[in-house]
Design a protein around this nucleic acid. Structure first.
Lengths: 355, 355
DNA sequence: TTGAAAGCGCTAACAG
DNA sequence: CTGTTAGCGCTTTCAA
């Protein structure tokens, strides 16, 4: 039988426990208790800071914990407390989430403020049973990135754990938390930016406005800006795409080239804008001389295009960081109120609108 | 006191357990046992398929499990089996991992072949104690993406769990598994591709050849190809960059423009190539007329540039998918042999080498 | 301020 | 083929 020790003071352990020279033992709360000459419950109390005890025993126990590098077994703890300290993170493949890395990195960094917690990820497909996953792992909370059906979300809600939606806008179901960008403002600023550059016929490239509230909000910003500057909204200048990817962008680009009046494009997703640029460059190399374009998201690809794409930065890292903070606070405080947080956006001017 | 039921047959439970109308109860193995009129261990045996039992009791138990939608509590199981069924996935922010999403998606998809297992992620920074994380969560195995110091890996190894390194080449430490691409072949094919297009002075854009074995192997392919086609390797045509990102690419591009002889570039990372293209386009718009360029990785950004970047596709999704498979098989079979798997690469010809 | 005892939900001998 | 028992490492009453 081999045990493992994760301690620097093997001698101390050997002195008090039956551990041979070649054995290794993993320290438990009992070991600490025995060495400190107290009961396991006292050690547990000290660790968790519940009920006070004499400074002496406290210090003694803490010193031992430190010296033996004791780490409580989270599994055992979970079993009794019914908390896994595990947060689920769910995302789909289908959206061009070039920013997934950043977001996940933000989440991972943010969760380090809560040393007990960890992030566990999955994706879903038709046959995948998310409820089972949550139940099986006894998740304490869950984050969804992007659009998921309200049907799914409602189901998950029955499991009675805090839910946080990133970049999703549903009918406001209680006990669901939202983190998104200042999307409407972003749409406004992007449009205003073009207006101030003297664009008169500003096209809108977007995902589905009926099915995707995210785009709809950005669209509202576009609309308001036009109104504020006395430009009439022209439905013919709105180009919707079901899919949000590079090739769909090229298709929109194709359509846009057919209207020679257009002198500005607000693309509500960078990846569409990148496709549009690709298509426009093919026809005539006139960005930004004849036509300006601005995107939304600030994905890395914005820098790769020629010309480089102006855009609305949506603070992706911060989104992840904030999200995990909010969710864990909900969990810890057992707070059922629904919260909505907007991450500030900012405009990034690059070559595609430099005139 | 409120319980939760995750079952469709509340009545059945109520009949046998003290559960009021408004209570909900979470099904345990004891419930199944009681309802089936057997002992918990028998249920456990059936679930885990150990030791045979009469078809009758078996069917009966299975039917109940199905009907009550019983899911074993993985935490309780972990506590006794000492297996968390949790695989750690560690990556850094610093490399431009535009492919992280794909890779992670591959991992997540692959892990669905092992319904008990899940993937738990973290990143590391200077102060982060990875060993503590692994210990705390009692991880069954761990995957590293990219370069990590052999120092770190050795430390982790002491924890005695299977380790799998993706895109990393260390001195071959035993019990460590490797998944990487056919990097040398890729370097060879990329170079040969340019040679066949009549390039005579082929520059190499790369990360550090001393510090990063990944690039070194790709470089070996470059070198072999030149040899095979009787072209002398010219050290002046090798451009190393410490960092692998877009801006470093632009810097390399700057250097490359200073040697007017160069008529082909093999870039051992797409992201460098994209920067190079950006810089070259500024000077003279002569890709692919005067100078060809091919990258390595096939990240989405390859399509966004003008011209679009030819490259070596390294099967990122498959890498993730295979990796998790290998690792879990190691765990399940308690197999200590070290394994190395190469994911096949293929050349993708786009505009930047179309001549 | 501390400890004894029970138990979270499961598995693993060992008996029967 | 099945049940009894003990116990994983921790927390949580409750009593001392």
């Amino acid at each position: 039988m081999i045990f493992f020790i994760y301690t620097n003071n093997v001698d101390l352990v050997k002195r008090f426990t039956k551990v041979g020279d070649n054995d290794l033992k993993k320290i438990t709360i009992k070991d600490i208790a025995k060495l400190a000459g107290v009961s396991p419950s006292t050690v547990s109390n000290v660790i968790n800071g519940v009920s006070k005890c004499s400074t002496d025993t406290r210090d003694n126990i803490l010193a031992l914990i430190e010296e033996l590098n004791y780490k409580p077994n989270i599994t055992a703890k979970s079993l009794v407390t019914k908390r896994s300290k595990l947060i689920g993170f769910v995302f789909k493949q289908d959206n061009e989430n070039s920013f997934l890395q950043n977001l996940l990195y933000g989440i991972q960094s943010g969760i380090k403020n809560f040393p007990e917690y960890d992030i566990i990820t999955t994706n879903i497909n038709n046959s995948y049973n998310l409820e089972e996953w949550i139940t099986k792992r006894n998740l304490d909370g869950i984050i969804f990135l992007g659009m998921f059906s309200s049907n799914l979300i409602s189901k998950i809600q029955r499991l009675n754990i805090p839910i946080l939606l990133i970049d999703n806008y549903f009918e406001q179901i209680p006990n669901i938390n939202y983190v998104y960008s200042e999307d409407t403002l972003g749409g406004y600023l992007a449009t205003e930016h073009l207006i101030k550059k003297k664009c008169k016929h500003i096209a809108l490239a977007t995902g589905s406005l009926k099915e995707n509230e995210l785009f709809f909000r950005r669209y509202l910003g576009y609309k308001s800006a036009l109104e504020d500057y006395g430009i009439k909204l022209d439905g013919n200048l709105i180009f919707e795409s079901k899919h949000i990817d590079f090739n769909s962008g090229k298709i929109l680009g194709e359509l846009i080239t057919q209207n020679k009046n257009i002198d500005g494009i607000v693309s509500l997703a960078d990846i569409l804008a990148i496709g549009i640029i690709k298509r426009l460059n093919k026809e005539y190399n006139k960005i930004p001389d004849d036509i300006l374009i601005i995107g939304f998201d600030n994905i890395p690809g914005c820098e790769y295009t020629t010309p480089q794409l102006s855009t609305i930065d949506q603070g992706i890292y911060e989104k992840g960081y904030k999200s995990i903070n909010i969710l864990i606070n909900k969990i810890e405080n057992n707070n059922k109120d629904s919260i909505e947080v907007q991450i500030p956006i900012k405009i990034i001017e690059r070559e595609s609108t430099k005139k």
